[in-house]
Design a protein around this nucleic acid. Structure first.
Lengths: 355, 355
DNA sequence: ATGAAAGCGCTAACAC
DNA sequence: GTGTTAGCGCTTTCAT
């Protein structure tokens, strides 16, 4: 682990070439395409490279080859725990493939996202976009601008990894119905969030089939701070249960409901989404929708890398769906008399608990 | 937001030069050092660049100038919530300064960390290392290899941002003493974690002064999964309160203690560290040590950027200490009769609660 | 104030 | 197999 001091000029393929008495291009080959060079000279060069502590200059490599060896991963909000596992997944898979990950926080903004993709065109070989806030057209345009894989965004022509929360939403509805709930509210996520829209569509369709009523509240920003408003709205809606866009909002609701003296699940049942860090130890623990997020990240990388490789790889998948299931914890679970729902709360008239 | 299709070759300074009828070098100047070029031509060039949707090639820039415009941020574990705010802080400050952030997960490994720094030498202008697992010597060597700022690692000669958890640890001890505790356990973090060692040193010194007994347990990996073993050890130690290396472990302990039927804080008080996402909504909410982590990230960036600028900036700070304070929540708070401690548990003989 | 020319370190034809 | 020769797109002397 001999670290070179700052002052010392880094060794280049020219230094190695000089030492070995060969041309720089031979060194390049010996290091990049070993099979194209004589066994003995290759050995010699590799040994010299080792000894001189040679580290290839990725900038130069990128400049002349056009390949950066980097993949950008765009997320709307780095501090949202949902993305941790995704990032971890992409990071691991990229590293395994010898790629570097460029993590970019797009701050929930479509403008930032669009310009990031634009600027990344030359610094990354491809990009993985999680929960894109872009319009369909913009996303398609971006995807023609550079190799791109979307996560949780289904647009024709754009390769994607989809986390199937809509069908889990139906499961959640059935779960709630089985507990006796007949009037359920959906707390929506950002207006530009496709998953939020799809879940609501799935939920309202399923509700109609089952003969129960659902209503949409929101939109709410995907942050715990949105929980207070969401909780108040949920209580006001008169629903006995609610399905929330994500665990962040749901956890925020839990806090507000406690302040207001609304008991969960006795007075109001809550179902979150994502099963993020914290969903299992909040109070009460959250019933939520779980899915293999880290694996989703890996799959996204695999798909992207496939398009970077042989252009003739016509067989590469362009769409991958990750299964999602309901994880039942204590925030739901109070059975009610079917068809005879008795709410433990008086709509909209709950006091804020003192202290 | 006109995105260029993949096929179209990106515009270069040559294109702009051709359009404006000037030399490429003039374009370069007009864009990089505008003051060195005639007002009118500058205007013309800048307009053309705009229209042609010019995006400078950062690789080429880096290759010829030696400056990459990127700063690497190394963290031991991306999924540890403690780093979220730090990352967010560095990201914001770097972006504000026009730098790109390279996020690297070193997987709690000193080898990965060392080689990452080595490889980053050419792809980043500097590096910020959080919670380094490197030995003092290796860290010093790394810091001579490239501009570096350490976070939470105090080594002579290495610029650093220190989060002052040791003194908060003393505060925690006083808090516990004021509640009547006289025998306290410290659940240590990784053996290579300097903050863990410093906190234990501060704690044992303070305990001696106050005349109470403390003992060290561990080390434990900074993950919730370590909580079970930590909880069992804490119970077995006979202490009535414990100070835990971080909130991750503390939260894991909370779960285990509930399973065992040990009440917090009645039977055992717990103090965590970092005030991570979740510390306020776990059950019971955690008393913990809080500090301005995001700001620490910003400060680290500012320090690093200062060293990248004018080499004569002799006035730049080389060490910055972030204050830390105790945030008291429900995981401590049961007053005990001073000097007459009655523990609610029988040491080491607690049953595992059924179910 | 602007142009010409020489690289930065590496890869990629193209010869030999 | 290996050397030669061009660049990749930009910055940077050095002239003018």
């Amino acid at each position: 682990m001999a670290v070179q001091p700052l002052s010392a000029r880094a060794t280049t393929i020219h230094d190695i070439a000089a030492v070995c008495g060969v041309a720089p291009s031979t060194v390049s080959r010996a290091l990049s395409t070993p099979e194209r060079v004589n066994f003995r000279t290759r050995e010699r060069i590799q040994r010299a490279a080792e000894e001189l502590n040679y580290i290839p200059n990725s900038q130069a490599k990128a400049l002349s080859s056009g390949k950066t060896g980097a993949v950008a991963v765009l997320v709307p909000d780095i501090t949202n725990p949902f993305y941790f596992d995704l990032i971890r997944g992409t990071q691991l898979q990229l590293k395994a493939a010898g790629y570097t990950q460029l993590l970019v926080d797009t701050e929930e903004s479509d403008d930032v996202e669009a310009s990031a993709i634009q600027e990344l065109r030359k610094s990354a070989d491809g990009v993985i976009v999680a929960a894109s806030r872009l319009s369909d057209e913009a996303l398609i345009a971006a995807s023609t601008a550079m190799p791109l894989v979307a996560v949780n965004r289904d647009v024709a022509g754009v390769p994607a990894v989809i986390i199937d929360t809509p069908s889990a939403t139906s499961q959640a509805l059935d779960h709630l119905i089985s507990l006796g709930h007949r009037h359920i509210s959906y707390l929506a996520g950002p207006a530009t969030s496709q998953p939020s829209a799809l879940r609501w569509a799935a939920l309202s369709a399923a509700a109609e089939e089952r003969g129960v009523t659902v209503q949409k509240l929101g939109p709410y920003a995907p942050k715990t701070q949105s929980g207070a408003a969401a909780a108040d709205a949920a209580v006001h809606s008169g629903a006995s249960a609610c399905i929330v866009f994500n665990d962040l909002i749901a956890i925020g609701m839990l806090q507000r409901l406690r302040e207001r003296g609304v008991r969960v699940p006795e007075d109001l049942s809550i179902v979150g989404c994502d099963d993020i860090f914290g969903a299992d130890f909040c109070n009460p623990p959250l019933t939520t929708m779980s899915s293999p997020i880290e694996q989703a990240g890996r799959v996204a990388v695999t798909m992207l890398l496939a398009r970077l490789g042989p252009p003739t790889a016509a067989g590469s998948r362009t769409r991958s769906v990750m299964p999602t299931h309901l994880t039942v914890r204590s925030s739901t679970g109070v059975a009610r008399d079917a068809g005879n729902v008795t709410l433990g709360l008086t709509t909209g008239s709950l006091p804020i608990a003192p202290e």
